[in-house]
Design a protein around this nucleic acid. Structure first.
Length: 784
DNA sequence: GGTTAGGCTTTG
């Protein structure tokens, strides 16, 4: 059947010349050729509308992979039309296919994906793809079981899988083996005294033997991704070791690990950070066999998932929740504010933390703050929690719901003997730990369904951002490689089309590949703005002309500053004709700082122009412009920066600051910083943010998305640096020129691999709006 | 081609 995918046909394309993948070139006479390979990548089915589809896959020449290190052993295959659709439905990763009737093209992505310089295009009636499928391959863990092959298997007799898996009861000391198992105990990776993190787990299999495994890896991402008891784990190259009368497993050279959800009904999705891993249809069967077996055993403690609404005092529980904000309490303790969409019915212990110590939106909607609880995370877990970001979904293992007075530094004391507090104690006993769960994992989907009943809060004020521009717009062909950006998230999501993103229910994450058609604002520097973490207002950065005027106005303020804690010195600067009369510039030094030999750290200035301040900033660390107000020092209008440090300018929020210039108290050893100064003068510091509107294009479809919350990750720059120096600004504009080159056709532009979040913005009065945002994505290519 | 840990509740 031409133009279709054919399963189970004996010896397909036998009348044609089989060309090994490395041997393919644009000179190949494709009408007389067939190509065979194993599917090692399978892209999403991309709809072009009208029952037209395209799909990209990568196949690997198994012979050449085995025999040489040739880079040309893997080739991109682009399937069109019904063939793409059939392939998407009928062919699995790891299966071997034979193709005929293809044409050979030049691969536009060869320099990026390092694959074969050509690609194979399958379209039209001549194209045909055959799947070679064994009818009953053996995946018995026993290495001795022979493998039966179906008549459709064209390649020689049955080949034995590259990997054999040893039943846990058959382990002998002093061997390197591959194993499959069900996880019956685990600890999240924890830091050892050595150089590595250690994962400690216990697994079992159909042989009923329980075996302890210890995995040492320096990088957290190389550790087994175990989320819950019952997960299935496959390990390659672990060594057996006798310890305490039993056999343990330890990772060794070339170690690799893949894990799977353990529930029989769930899809077999490998969890791994390794880019190329061995996965055959037999693996899927092995996972399913273990799942079915495990389900019939009484292996796991049947701890139901505990929601905050069903927490019992003095108990230990595992909790799935979302992080709203966090605050460092002291060196060994972090406070996490979390919620799970349910209400804890017990009275809760309260904590107070400085607003400035909070990372994330400290002002939550009523609904959310009613449901949110505090979790104190100690010691080793506090170290891990430092990496968490507001919005992360967390699973906390062996969380202690405790009552009784707490004496942690942030406890606001009070009556409290019956008040409930959540502690994640230090140490790893009983698997105590915490990890971020990927957004697409079933437990998180369930959590989201509950949470969706409560209005969306965001780290920034979304409507403020949407006011800056209008509403998002509307409107595929081609398949391709990538890419000028890469995703930094660890969501195991398939790529989808822009159309699918638009059709989705908000509150989800997607992986897409698209080009950048246009972006705003132009000029680019207008994208840099100021943002208040407290009231979430966003404002423009004033230009120097405006600032000069503000400074000039302030310099005209009458009177003197006579603060008892200041030493003042005035300079009479000569004028330059009637238009530029003489003026007085005063410099004030704090007596305490002078006594602490920190007189160069901070000076207060009066009567200075913007140029004066910039000049003084070269000689002093911090410059704080002030003006007289009834004998005391007062700050200038907060539309101007209230503080300067070198090229850096610090602004305060007009709405949230309660300005009053007080003496800065320092202890001798402490370094002065902008937070301390801001606090001394009652200023709530504004933060720099970058807000870009990107128009993504995927064939004929486009989608407008925002980039702001993760702009620093995207451009890999600090926005404070961008605000202060030209070099950092150039980095951003060069990157944008590279992603969206002026005057170049879209066909020649690079592709971007992106992680997108979708969410609803509550507009005042108007209908709710769905917005899209680029998150956890970084540019990879450095523009020339 | 090599140390770490080797399950079993903090003491906030």
């Amino acid at each position: 059947m031409p133009g279709r995918v054919v399963v189970d046909q004996a010896n397909p394309g036998a009348h044609l010349t089989r060309i090994p993948i490395p041997g393919i070139s644009t000179a190949t006479d494709s009408s007389q050729a067939s190509v065979k390979g194993k599917v090692i990548k399978k892209g999403p089915l991309v709809s072009l509308g009208d029952e037209d589809f395209v799909l990209k896959a990568v196949i690997e020449d198994e012979e050449s992979v085995r025999s040489s290190s040739s880079r040309n052993g893997s080739i991109n295959v682009i399937l069109f039309g019904g063939l793409a659709k059939d392939f998407s439905e009928a062919v699995s990763l790891g299966e071997v296919v034979v193709m005929t009737g293809f044409t050979v093209g030049k691969s536009p992505t060869a320099h990026k994906d390092q694959l074969h310089p050509c690609n194979l295009l399958l379209s039209g009636d001549d194209a045909c793809l055959y799947v070679l499928r064994s009818l009953s391959p053996s995946v018995s863990p026993s290495p001795t079981a022979p493998k039966r092959s179906s008549a459709s298997e064209v390649s020689k007799p049955a080949k034995v899988s590259k990997y054999t898996y040893v039943p846990l009861a058959d382990l002998k000391p002093g061997a390197v083996v591959n194993v499959y198992g069900v996880v019956v105990f685990f600890k999240q990776p924890y830091k050892t005294r050595g150089t590595d993190y250690c994962s400690s787990l216990k697994i079992t299999d159909q042989s009923n033997q329980k075996v302890v495994c210890t995995i040492f890896c320096e990088k957290l991402e190389d550790h087994p991704k175990i989320f819950q008891l019952g997960d299935i784990i496959r390990m390659h190259r672990v060594k057996t070791q006798a310890f305490g009368g039993s056999i343990n497993l330890l990772n060794t050279f070339g170690f690799s690990v893949v894990t799977f959800d353990g529930r029989p009904e769930s899809a077999v999705v490998p969890r791994t950070s390794s880019k190329s891993f061995h996965f055959e249809p037999e693996d899927e069967r092995a996972v399913n066999e273990l799942r079915t077996w495990a389900a019939k055993q009484d292996l796991l403690p049947t701890t139901p998932r505990v929601h905050l609404s069903s927490v019992q005092p003095q108990s230990y529980l595992d909790l799935d929740c979302q992080l709203l904000w966090k605050a460092q309490v002291d060196g060994a303790c972090i406070l996490l504010k979390v919620w799970d969409g349910t209400r804890c019915t017990h009275p809760l212990q309260d904590f107070t933390v400085e607003a400035s110590a909070i990372q994330g939106p400290s002002s939550l909607s009523r609904e959310r703050s009613d449901l949110a609880v505090n979790i104190l995370v100690f010691d080793n877990h506090a170290e891990i929690a430092k990496q968490f970001k507001p919005g992360d979904y967390l699973r906390i293992y062996n969380l202690h719901a405790t009552t009784g007075a707490s004496s942690v530094p942030c406890s606001s004391g009070g009556s409290g003997a019956n008040q409930l507090a959540f502690h994640l104690h230090g140490g790893t006993s009983y698997g105590r730990g915490v990890r971020v769960l990927p957004d697409d994992c079933p437990a998180i989907q369930e959590l989201r369904r509950v949470m969706e009943c409560f209005p969306e809060d965001d780290i920034f004020n979304e409507s403020a951002i949407m006011e800056i521009w209008g509403t998002p717009p509307e409107t595929l062909d081609d398949a391709r490689g990538c890419c000028a950006t890469e995703r930094r998230c660890d969501h195991a999501l398939q790529q989808v089309t822009l159309a699918e993103v638009k059709q989705s229910v908000p509150g989800q994450l997607f992986h897409v590949s698209a080009q950048l058609k246009s972006y705003q604002p132009r000029p680019l520097y207008q994208a840099l703005k100021l943002h208040c973490p407290m009231c979430r207002a966003i404002q423009e950065i004033p230009d120097d002309d405006l600032l000069s005027e503000t400074f000039l106005e302030a310099s005209k303020a009458p009177g003197r500053i006579a603060e008892p804690w200041l030493l003042s010195e005035s300079l009479l600067l000569p004028g330059d004709g009637p238009k530029a009369p003489g003026r007085t510039l005063s410099i004030h030094l704090s007596k305490e700082l002078f006594g602490e030999r920190k007189s160069k750290d901070l000076i207060y200035v009066t009567g200075a122009t913007l140029e004066d301040v910039c000049q003084l900033a070269a000689a002093y660390q911090y410059i704080l412009p002030v003006m007289p107000s009834g004998g005391s020092a007062s700050l200038m209008d907060l539309s101007a920066p209230f503080l300067f440090r070198g090229n850096k300018r610090y602004y305060g929020c007009k709405q949230c600051s309660q300005v009053s210039v007080k003496e800065l108290k320092v202890d001798g050893s402490e370094e002065i910083n902008e937070e301390m100064i801001a606090e001394a003068v009652g200023v709530k510091l504004l933060q720099y943010c970058l807000v870009l509107k990107l128009e993504l294009q995927q064939g004929r479809d486009t989608l407008e998305v925002l980039l702001w919350r993760d702009a620093e990750t995207f451009f890999q720059v600090s926005l404070e640096e961008v605000a202060a120096n030209q070099e950092a600004q150039n980095k951003i504009s060069k990157t944008m020129d590279f992603l969206c080159p002026p005057g170049r056709s879209i066909a020649k532009q690079p592709w971007l691999d992106l992680c997108l979040s979708t969410y609803t913005v509550k507009a005042d009065g108007g209908p709710n709006r769905v917005c899209y945002q680029v998150c956890q994505t970084s540019t990879t290519a450095t523009p020339p």
